[in-house]
């Protein structure tokens, strides 16, 4: 588990920031993006996948969350 931050990019997408590993990358897909459920598996542009516990509603961004590494390229 690591602290991460998700924020909106200037282009309107989502970006994923993991300070511990200096990792800042765009999120290409998010498992749940509904009005009553938000989060789950996050797929990054670099091929890595992280998991955040789904929230009950889409949060105000940026937000700091705890994430689990499912699969990372390196």
């Amino acid at each position: 588990m690591a602290n991460i931050m998700i924020r909106k990019t200037a282009e309107g997408g989502l970006s994923f920031y993991l300070p511990k590993r200096d990792l800042e990358d765009n999120i290409v897909s998010i498992e749940f993006d509904q009005t009553n459920k938000w989060g789950g598996e996050l797929r990054l542009a670099n091929g890595g996948t992280y998991y955040v516990d789904p929230l009950d509603a889409p949060p105000r961004l940026p937000i700091s969350l705890r994430a689990k590494r499912v699969d990372a390229p390196e």
Binding site: M5, R7, Y17, P19, R60, P62, I63, S64
Partner: peptide, 12 residues
């Protein structure tokens, strides 16, 4: 950048 990111989150 740390404090800027923090202010973005806390104060928008």
């Amino acid at each position: 950048n740390y404090i800027s990111r923090h202010m973005e989150e806390k104060y928008g």
